[in-house]
Design a binder for these strands. Sequence first.
DNA 1: AGCGCTGAAACAAACGATTGCAGTCAACGT
DNA 2: ACGTTGACTGCAATCGTTTGTTTCAGCGCT
Lengths: 305, 305
Amino acid sequence: MQRVKLVDVARAAGVHPGTASRALSADTGGLVSPDTVRRVVRAAERLGYVPNTVARGLRTARSFLVAMVVPDVTNPLFPPMVRGAEQVLSQAGFTLVLTDTDNDAGTERKQVQQLRARGTDGFLIATARWQDQLVEELADGRVPAVLINRNTSSHRLPYVGGDERTGIAVAVDHLVSLGHRRIVHLAGPQDTSTGRERASAFRHALRTHGLPITRAQVRTCDSYTERAGAQATERLLASDVEFTALLAGNDLIALGALAVLAATGKRCPGDVSVVGFNDLPMVDKLTPSLTTVTLPLREMGALAA
Amino acid sequence: MQRVKLVDVARAAGVHPGTASRALSADTGGLVSPDTVRRVVRAAERLGYVPNTVARGLRTARSFLVAMVVPDVTNPLFPPMVRGAEQVLSQAGFTLVLTDTDNDAGTERKQVQQLRARGTDGFLIATARWQDQLVEELADGRVPAVLINRNTSSHRLPYVGGDERTGIAVAVDHLVSLGHRRIVHLAGPQDTSTGRERASAFRHALRTHGLPITRAQVRTCDSYTERAGAQATERLLASDVEFTALLAGNDLIALGALAVLAATGKRCPGDVSVVGFNDLPMVDKLTPSLTTVTLPLREMGALAA
DNA sequence: AGCGCTGAAACAAACGATTGCAGTCAACGT
DNA sequence: ACGTTGACTGCAATCGTTTGTTTCAGCGCT
């Protein structure tokens, strides 16, 4: 702990602690004479006073803590978001608490509970499932929460995300302009809004181009991982579906697909074109895709509200 | 806030709040009769009591908060550390606070101050410079702190890091076994322990192999970034130093070097061999290197102490 | 001169949990 | 039968701020 407290400052300035408190707070500063304010402020500086956030939090029921819940920090998609959020938050005097749920609903629940006990002032949820019990509970509660990157079916919480539809549309346009006619979508998990949205956008884009769609042309991966992407690709190859291009639900899935294709002797840009999604670092060999980096900035607006 | 508090539980169980407190805490549980404990615990469960961490923190001067300070979450080196730390911490009932200093000493200072005001129970510092004012202050303070990944010259705080020396040695062995004789080291910034240590290890390794060393063979980059790596490589090419292999201070520097080499027409594994350091994801094209992933686990030990 | 009013500062009660201290009561030994 | 012990539990202070409610002095007005 730091040692100097409000009482010390007050004594040094020759005023009552309560008065000192008001003098130091910007919005209650008007209640005390300019002269006293000056005296208190000077004393505070001289003593190196740093208000005790815990005590303040107890009294005001605010913690100036905002939690961000991500499935896995190791996934390169999240660090930029975390970074953006952190900058905005610390600017506004908040502290960012990061929790990695390890893609586990149980852990997530525990963490969030823990954080609520702490009096967390707000939540940024990047782990939302399409049907998400926990999110519903948060929506019921009185703590502000914002969904980021993934939405839920209920739409009860504000949501910040990229424009999946035009992202996918651009990708499909690109492939079509390269002459591809038989495109397969390696969709992300359908219990996430991104997976659903992108799959739906894919179908729509094909229709727009007048291309036929069959059920078999959308293969669902059960997670956004290389492994899942690889498995889906293996199944795809084992089937009799013909294709000249793959549009992956995200870059990790794309990487998994590339690995399998390489292993089975297919040439990457030659025999089959692969397009990813998310613009992970160091994926210059893949065709360009949508960026998610702008999200954290927008999230500020949501947070302010 | 959650509504049920200790008083409610106490009332429901028909005991005094103080007693309820003791009954619920594991180590004071012995002071109260087993029967009462049961009654209180049951009441707490029934009411869904969650202790208010803020209030507890005020009284006990502990926050169960541990802060991790990193220069840039976006750097793939850190997320695994964050992840490892977070798991250990939340296991132990602590909450991880992440702060990204954006490589700026000023921000770092502000953040740390902020966190101390919060009564943070411990710090994990991944931003240490070789000569680091802030670290010294932390060492002077009474809050436990552990350095991770980077050490300081003073060695006053416990440090957790990888074994740079043998890592570099292995890399040099590898290059030498490939027949390389003229190896250049693109060293990391010399105000970090990793940069210094690796450079020193490099010199030592060359000596071990009986290879000559000149000053010009260690080029210092002023940061661990692609840009710095690129610049150093350009300077290297502009000089008259001959070389057949590059050992980069980390993978980002290596990437920068690769880019420049490619731009100037040099073939990557053909004309010049490049070795990185840190095992970033998706760098399969580079020769294998040391992994930093084991750090967070060890850090648990440091933390426990 | 008396009255009300206003601006400024002091007072004290919270916020919710922990904990040293004191009190109660039964059991027990002599 | 009485003092003593010891096991429980109640009491109240405390952590450091914030904030609603006095208190008070000075001032203008009639």
